[in-house]
């Protein structure tokens, strides 16, 4: 008899996350499980937990430990390799590329949150109005998303080249007046942000459009009957109804900003004005330099930064599921 009940409960731990569930009522139910049920549960929970530890917690903890060493990847780690917080003090006080990289990451985040994502939402709202050629525009704006960032990088590199399309269109072809979009260290981050947004806008647009399609049309009708304008309808009715999608948009935007890597790396390996934390990690720890300790320290800092939006998101999600 308990079997069907258990079966309906068994999937529950997986989506909420493995480690967190050990509340009172559950424990009571465990006692009525048969031996076989326990084994099944153990397998169901055990495999994700094992994978989680092996592929997420293991490397994370290893990175944190590496960040206190000056290990260069050769041979074992000895007591001499342990340098305490030296990597961190170097990053914060002396490493000239660290602060620019951090600032570029934050610029990336701000640009996406305040410019690229709102444009994507705006496009979605426009296309939702069934204007003529809506399908065509959808495809046009979505097209960059299909391309890999490597291809996006090459496309924009050609546009921005000193003899490329943009300078030629502006008539800036001489040595004295050509704008070096990707070479000028104070300009190139903006040029890359435009290229990255080109792709991001389409991504957000499609996500939001899908959400808009699922909004109950009677809400719009009711708003229209009440005499609300289009703008009022969107901000007072549609936008609040879209709350779950909005959260997804915010999360996607933050993730895309923090993991920014490809474009800058393709353009100049993330140097000369295009420093990003992710690239500093790569250049330090994986390149010929092989400064695993320093790379790990930067990775830990990026992790701490990432924890802020992750924590905000998770507390939100958990609060809403808890209700």
């Amino acid at each position: 008899m308990p079997d069907p009940q258990v079966l309906s409960l068994a999937p529950a731990p997986a989506p909420t996350g493995a480690g967190v569930v050990a509340s009172g009522p559950r424990r009571r139910r465990f006692s009525i499980l048969t031996r076989r049920d326990k084994i099944v549960l153990l397998v169901i929970v055990g495999i994700p937990v094992f994978l989680d530890i092996a592929f997420i917690w293991g490397p994370t903890v290893a990175s944190i430990l590496f960040s206190f060493t000056n290990w260069q990847g050769y041979g074992g780690i000895t007591a001499q390799n342990i340098v305490g917080i030296q990597n961190y003090t170097f990053l914060f006080t002396q490493y000239t590329l660290f602060w620019p990289a951090l600032i570029h990451n934050l610029m990336w985040l701000a640009f996406f949150v305040f410019i690229a994502s709102p444009i994507g939402i705006f496009f979605a709202v426009l296309l939702d109005r069934e204007i003529r050629g809506s399908r065509f525009y959808q495809n046009v704006f979505y097209f960059p998303v299909v391309l890999s960032l490597a291809v996006v990088g090459i496309i924009w590199e050609l546009q921005y080249a000193p003899d490329g399309f943009i300078d030629s269109a502006l008539g800036l072809t001489k040595q004295t007046n050509a704008i070096d979009w990707l070479g000028n260290p104070s300009l190139n981050i903006w040029a890359v942000l435009v290229a990255a947004s080109w792709r991001h806008v389409g991504y957000i647009m499609v996500l939001y459009l899908a959400g808009l399609k699922s909004v109950d049309p009677t809400l719009r009708e009711a708003a229209a009957i009440d005499g609300a304008s289009d703008v009022q309808t969107f901000f007072r009715v549609i936008f609040p109804v879209m709350a779950p999608i909005n959260v997804v948009i915010v999360v996607v935007t933050v993730i895309e900003s923090l993991r920014a890597f490809d474009l800058a790396y393709i353009i100049n390996q993330g140097t000369n004005g295009l420093e990003l934390l992710s690239i500093l990690i790569t250049n330090n720890s994986i390149s010929e330099a092989s400064l695993v300790g320093r790379g790990s320290a930067i990775a830990v800092i990026l992790l701490v930064i990432s924890l802020v939006p992750i924590t905000l998101y998770l507390t939100r999600v958990m609060r809403s599921t808890g209700e």
Binding site: L97, P185, Q269, T271, N283, S287, E288, A289, S290, L291
Partner: peptide
């Protein structure tokens, strides 16, 4: 040293000078 001369070391410093 390879860890000195790389993209995030000397190459970056020289680019800062050239700017």
């Amino acid at each position: 040293r390879p860890d000195f001369a790389g993209a995030d070391g000397m190459q970056g410093f020289l680019q800062k000078f050239l700017a």
